[in-house]
Design a binder for these strands. Sequence first.
DNA 1: TGTACATCAGTGAACGCGCGTTCACTGATGTAC
DNA 2: TGTACATCAGTGAACGCGCGTTCACTGATGTAC
Lengths: 212, 212
Amino acid sequence: VTERPYHHGNLRRALLDAAVDVIDEKGPAALSLRELAGRAGVSHGAPAHHFGDKAGLLTALVAEGYELLGDEMAAAAARGDFLEAGLAYVRFATGHPAHFQVMFEPHLYRPDDPAVVAARARTDAALRGTAATVPAAREHEAGSVAIAGWCLVHGLATLWQAGNLRTMADDPVELAQRVAATAFGRAASARDGAPAPGRGEPATGSTVTPRR
Amino acid sequence: VTERPYHHGNLRRALLDAAVDVIDEKGPAALSLRELAGRAGVSHGAPAHHFGDKAGLLTALVAEGYELLGDEMAAAAARGDFLEAGLAYVRFATGHPAHFQVMFEPHLYRPDDPAVVAARARTDAALRGTAATVPAAREHEAGSVAIAGWCLVHGLATLWQAGNLRTMADDPVELAQRVAATAFGRAASARDGAPAPGRGEPATGSTVTPRR
DNA sequence: TGTACATCAGTGAACGCGCGTTCACTGATGTAC
DNA sequence: TGTACATCAGTGAACGCGCGTTCACTGATGTAC
């Protein structure tokens, strides 16, 4: 038995990490503050000290999620690459399934929390910003392109998580490239210039050239 | 107080209906057999009699969900209309949010249940069947078109449910038409023949003519 | 260097609750003769 | 029409459990002088 100091050091962080683990294993519904305390090696009353209550903890988790997502989306937006922004979305969702899952179950946390609202606004702005750079946006309303892209990657990420697409590909990001090529064609990548001079090849993912 | 007969009549149905209500109100995590029993006006032990346990009840709900969805998808498939199949998906998801929600949380029920597997297979077949009729399927693998379409409508339905698209439209099905037009263009509707001779109008939904 | 004090982090006992599940039971229904 | 019997549907008491939350507390840390 190792020596347990009275002060944990960074219990807040440890509890959030434990929450991620539990959600990955059993889903957000099965999460309890007592179990998190146990995993962090701390008495069961401790979590309330940091987060007030269960919704408080999940609200913190969601804020963190939107910050992570916002970072990646903003980077893609800075490069003006719509396709890459979509892939970043998929990468985030499948790389941080616990965060992603809770973010879209608003009754589990407090969606009006200022930190959540701010981080979400940044993500939205990045999405809309890159959408405007897409050539297809000349034909359709830019907002419509943003929504279509969002639906596409969100649906893919969600279905992947639920296990409905596992037979289609090994890697969700690769699948996302293929699917984006099917739906949007070459036009998805602003970098490639004018849309579709020649016939696209059968979906190998090679019809779209992402930034890197 | 009205007279309560000893035999309920159709308790199984009543419990499933109550489950839908509770899930609509508070999400699947908050569902308890005891509450369902209470709502159906029956003792708390009764649900176990019909469904064995909680997962059994949700499994029945999911099987029912896939049957409802399969019916609508199969109808669209019979008409060979891919766009309409997608709209049927959105219509189902937003019209039966409780079913839809549980269907895509496999750890809440028994995904291997025979009734579930059979109903799901029918839905899948309808989706793939209609996808093959899309003109764009000549350029890309038909499977890829099916997946892209599925991701699009699934993402839209999911985001709508989470409240993330409510500001974009009054009606999710109308929004789905607009989004499908943006992503797939005229090609989405097999009925319209060759894809896109003229420039599409700004997204009013009128660039795609659904069957009815 | 030492002392006093404020602040903070985590403890652990206690509370009341709603839950799933079990089980011997009883009331109602249907069928055979 | 009547009787006996099997089957089914729902009862209600009991069980043990894990939960969120509260709260007076104590150990540790940092700061002022």
